[in-house]
Each structure stands twice: as C-alpha cells, then as structure tokens.
Amino acid sequence: MQDTGSLQRARISTDAFPEARRLQMWREVYGRGLAAVDIEPIGDTPFHAEVTFSQLPGISIAAGSRSPAHYRASRELAARAKDFMVISVLRAGRASATQFGKELIAGVGSASVIAPLDPSTSTMLTEGSFVTLLLPLPTIARRAPHYTQAFGRPIPSSNTALHLLNRYVDVVADTSVTDPAIARSVSEHMLDLAALALGAHGDYAELARMRGGTAARLTAIKSDILQALGDSELSTEAIAIRHGISPRYVRKLFEQDGSSFSTFVLAERLAKAHRMLTDRHFGHLNIAQIAHESGFSDVSYFNRTFRRQFGSRPSDFREAAKCVWREQQD
C-alpha cells in the first residue's frame, strides 16, 4: 500500500476467492505477496481468513481473523523485511509464535516480537483474531536503542504501553484520518508507545512517555467519551475508573491539551445534537428526545447552550433541515 501521508485502508478476504482455489490464492496473494510467509492449514476446518491493512506514515497495521493454520517465515522470506520488525498482539483465540526456539505468546492480550532476518513460525491454534504492526527498524532504534532485548520473549498483556498501543489501534480503525499532519502525529504517538512496550528506558523512555503515552491515553479517553455522550451521568470519576487512573489525572490530561473535561463533553454533545437535528434518520425524534440522546437531562439548558454555540435555536435548525429534506424528495 502506498504511503501518501494520510491514513490508507485496504481489506482482503478469502471470501473474495473461488472456494476451490481459496487456499491457493490466499497463499499467493497474502502469504507470498504481502506477509512473506508460507501457510499450512491445521485440521479439517474450511480455511478462511480476512485482514484489514491500515497504512500510516512510517507504520503499517494489519488486523484480522484466521482459522487454525501455521504461518512460517523462512530465512529467505524473512530477508524481504530486513529493515522492519513486527509486534503482533493476540486479540482472541489460542495461538503460538516461536523464534530462536522460544515461545513468544503469553495468552490473549500479549504480544510477540518478531526479529527481522531470522525464521519464525506463528500458529493460530483455534479460530482467533490478531493485530500486527510492521515497524521500521531505524525509527525504533532511535527511540529504543536496546530494542533487541525484547526478542525471544513475549510482551505481557499487563504492559501499560502495549495496552495503550492496542487501544490506539482501535481508535485508528474507527476513525477516518485524511489530514497528513494528523496522520503523522498519530504515527509518532504509536511509535513512541511501541518503543515503550519494547523496553525503552532512561531519557528515551521519558521522551516517549511525554509524547506517546500521554497523547495515546487522552485519545483513548476521548474515544470512550464519544461512545458515552448519551449518558447524562458521564463524569471524570466514571472515565477514571474505566482507565485505571485518578479523576485528577483525567482533568490534568485535558488541561495539558488546552481544554477541560467539561468543555470537551459539552462541545461533543452539542455537535452530536446538531448532527441529529439535521439528519433525516432522526427526523422522528423531537427536540427533547434529541437533547436526551445527546446527554442533556435539562432541555432548557440544552436550548441555551445550543443557541450560544450555533447562533440559532435547535427548532430553527430542525425546521431548516425539514425544508432540505422536502426539496430532496421533490
């Protein structure tokens, strides 16, 4: 996939191939063409797999699911990716990954670190899902000079940087990033988190925490808030519990971002209400219902803040939207 500076996505699935040639074509297209591995199915389960590729500046992400199979990288195939290293997180199922004769997976949520140039085998023992990150070695070496110490052992699921990196992957998967500057920023944060997960320490770790750890945590918190805007009881305390941090730290993260928790929540609730008022799919809801769905328990307060934000009453926007809807029907 070409690196254009913005987030690029592509999806491939065995469902797109003729059933009789499914395995053969997956071996050619995915195994040899993309992942540089040989594939050997396990058992009698019909072979299937699907992968979504996301390309950010300097980092590639593959997320998908597989039926049981061995994915073997020979020395010859591994040499094709000599300038990269791989971090692969097991999301579901049972799996094994070996390199240098050592087991690299420690259960769901853990990550295997695959060194370049040397043979390795990754095996999905059951139906399962994964996320794999392809990271440029020169970039990782600058952030975590002792990264080779991570080879030959798993990164446990309890690793805080890995947990944040995993959350960041979900945010990227759910977000459309077309601005190259934002895409570069997201990529930088993810590379910093990867360096921390690989064991960056000293000044390198401190710099990565300042850039990547804080940004990723705030991104994950904002993502959770957007999912819970309709909850009128949404608070710093509730978010803090979900993320295992203190309410004070939640507030501090927003302050460092030049905002506040309450300001962000209010702005996003008003934006959600605005979208609903002008979307015909919500045309059956009245103003009070939209206010409630957006997290406002007081309709009078909603009307005041909406008018202050957008310069008109919610009812004015709804009436204007209805005119547009009628014109579209005609």
Rank of each mutant, 00 (worst) to 15 (best):
V131G: 11
S122I: 14
D3S: 15
I39H: 08
Q328T: 12
D279Y: 01
L270A: 04
G212C: 04
A62K: 08
K102H: 05
D203L: 06
D83N: 04
M85E: 13
T175V: 03
A10G: 14
E255W: 07
T52Q: 09
H281K: 14
F254Y: 13
H284Y: 07
F47I: 01
L196T: 01
A215L: 07
F84E: 15
D231Q: 02
K272S: 01
L125K: 03
A63G: 08
D192C: 10
A215D: 12
E237K: 15
F306V: 04
Y204N: 09
E19Q: 15
L234D: 11
V86E: 11
L191Y: 10
A267E: 07
F17M: 11
V37S: 11
A216R: 10
G93K: 00
S74F: 02
L56Y: 07
D174I: 06
T278Q: 13
A115S: 00
S246A: 07
G93P: 04
E188V: 03
P145T: 01
T278D: 09
G109Q: 08
S185C: 12
H281R: 15
T148C: 06
E188N: 07
V131E: 08
A267H: 06
Y71P: 07
G202I: 00
S112I: 05
I61W: 09
F261H: 03
S259D: 14
I140M: 12
G5A: 08
L56M: 02
R307A: 15
E127A: 12
G93A: 12
T139V: 12
A92I: 09
Y204F: 11
S232M: 08
F254G: 13
G152T: 04
N286A: 04
T219V: 09
L226W: 06
T160L: 15
F296I: 02
E76M: 01
P116A: 00
S223P: 08
S294I: 04
R22H: 01
A240H: 04
T52P: 05
T178D: 13
A173I: 08
V172Y: 11
V265M: 06
A20P: 00
Y249N: 07
R66N: 15
T160V: 15
E28G: 04
E127I: 03
G152K: 11
S13H: 10
D3A: 14
I39W: 00
I87N: 00
D224K: 05
D330E: 10
A161K: 05
R280C: 11
P145N: 00
L193Y: 05
H163G: 04
E293C: 14
A208Y: 00
E76Y: 01
Y30V: 06
